[in-house]
Amino acid sequence: MTVKIAVRGLEKAFGPKRVLQGVDLDVPEKQSTVIIGGSGTGKSVLLKCIIGLITPDGGSIRIDGREMVGASDDERRAVQGRIGMLFQGAALFDSLPVWENVAFGLLAEKRLGRHEAREEAVRVMRSVGLAADVADRYPAETSGGMQKRIGLARAIATKPEIIFFDEPTTGLDPIMADVINDLVRACVRDLGATAVSISHDMASVRKIADRVALIHEGRIRWEGPASSIDASGNAYVDQFIHGRAEGPIRVGQVA
């Protein structure tokens, strides 16, 4: 197994609040890694550090062996071009119609003209189960489930090597959540992408994860293959998957 992303000793604080306190994580290539953990434990911050949207205070992030912490803007942009991200709130551009959202990366990289980009956008939209007539709507005129799918289509349109999914199924009904799970799986299987997802939803974790990492109080507390989460023998994992209030993760301790 080749390591695509290697995170070592990553630290990030916002004022007095130490969100990441030395995160170590290896993300294997062409597999699906899922990060689990309570709300506000810094899962989104971790992804944003890796993608270069937040500058960490310390530690190291290597993507394909190349150090990203302290890299120049140009180097970082080159790597960002190979990463796609589905944001927690979809983060669609509300001044642009849906198809232009999906085609945004293609247009930005000048790979295609507007006409071909639109056709390609409609094709990608269809692959995530969006009808062509959605293309000319504006994001505000679509439902939450559609917005997730539009965000997903936008993230995969440029066929990135690495895709981040920040809570892809949160806030969706179980059926729509399962549709999104299948799409996430398909990204790894069909596009050969390396996927890193964040999830709270154990059904979703079981479905999309090859590997699972649990983050708590700024550190990774357990990491292992998805098949072994039920027999991990780790108190954090057991508490999380059974959704118990009792255990090492204490509610109110974070925040």
């Binding site: 944003k48 993608i51 270069g52 949207l53 942009r77 960002q80 071009g81 990463i83 796609g84 991200m85 944001f87 927690q88 709130g89 983060a91 669609l92 551009f93 509300d94 945004f104 990366g105 930005a108 990289e109 936008r154 993230a155 440029t158």
Partner: peptide, 17 residues
């Protein structure tokens, strides 16, 4: 609003400064 809804972050991930 673009900042708060992460649209500005999304721009960077789509090769746009």
């Amino acid at each position: 609003t673009m900042r708060v809804t992460e649209q500005i972050d999304a721009l960077s991930t789509l090769s746009t400064d």
